[in-house]
């Protein structure tokens, strides 16, 4: 993993942010102007264009968090720990977005905000596991907390394929529109969905990258403070 000691923002990160910022309004235009209204559900189906890409961004965040945690456990390199924290936070952000937008759609489609469908339940479980990870990380920056949290993130990774394949393996009410068993979407709905996927993918990458850089800065400053304290510089300055 490349370290970004340079305080300047890398051009690739800047490009990702700029493209994501341009794609945002374009995606909204495609959703609300170009994509047709769904026959049975009406306008509420348009939640789908943000809900599904947000779920993919959630997968990305949680998978990166778990993989970076595994590498951190193997190498004890703080750069991987910074990446894990960043990806965990961003994954959690999109998980909350999914768990709020989904029930709002369900109120119209199913008549209830929540049902214990396998996909909904497994998504909630992933959210709870990674929420526990973030709580552990926020409670203190000690080595024990880091290692325990890293283990928790790896456990959380097991739930990701469960979410993904729950609609195929178990009977439930969650739609299977874009899975292999689904009938697909109307051709005019595709551009909005594809733009949604691209927008959320770029946004999640930009957020993870930015957050990881901030975490690295925090880690380096903490190390500097420790070093200064060990040399007695901080005590002299205080005196």
């Amino acid at each position: 993993m490349a370290d970004s000691d340079d305080s300047r923002t890398p051009w690739l990160l800047t490009a990702t942010i700029v493209i994501a910022a341009l794609l945002g309004p374009l995606t909204l235009y495609a959703i609300f102007v170009m994509a047709p209204v769904e026959q049975q559900m009406g306008v509420v189906q348009k939640i789908f264009y943000f809900h599904v890409p947000a779920a993919n961004a959630m997968y990305l965040g949680f998978i990166v968090c778990a993989v970076a945690s595994a590498v951190y456990l193997a190498r004890r390199d703080e750069r991987w720990d910074a990446l894990a924290v960043a990806a965990g936070e961003v994954g959690m952000l999109f998980c909350v977005a999914v768990l709020i937008s989904g029930p709002l759609w369900a109120r119209k489609a199913w008549g209830v905000y929540w049902t214990w469908d396998p996909r909904l339940t497994s998504t909630l479980l992933a959210g709870m596991i990674f929420a526990a990870y973030l709580v552990l990380r926020s409670s203190g920056g000690g080595e024990v907390e880091r290692r325990f949290a890293a283990g928790l993130a790896i456990v959380g990774l097991i739930d990701i394929p469960v979410i993904k394949y729950s609609v195929q393996r178990w009977r439930g009410t969650h739609p299977t529109v874009i899975s292999s068993k689904g009938g697909g979407i109307h051709p005019d709905m595709r551009p909005a969905l594809l733009l949604g996927f691209l927008f959320f993918a770029l946004l999640s990458v930009a957020l993870i990258w930015t957050r990881a850089r901030l975490e690295r800065t925090r880690q380096r400053m903490e190390a500097l403070e420790m070093e200064a304290a060990e040399r007695g510089l901080l005590e002299e300055a205080d005196a």
Partner: peptide, 27 residues
């Protein structure tokens, strides 16, 4: 019984639960 495809609307339709506020709320 679960949805397997989304189709475009043809003609005027009436909604029992108004989807507009739910849509705006989600976004």
């Amino acid at each position: 019984g679960r949805s397997t495809e989304f189709r475009a609307v043809e003609g005027a339709t009436e909604e029992d639960v108004p989807g507009g506020p739910l849509l705006v709320g989600a976004y």
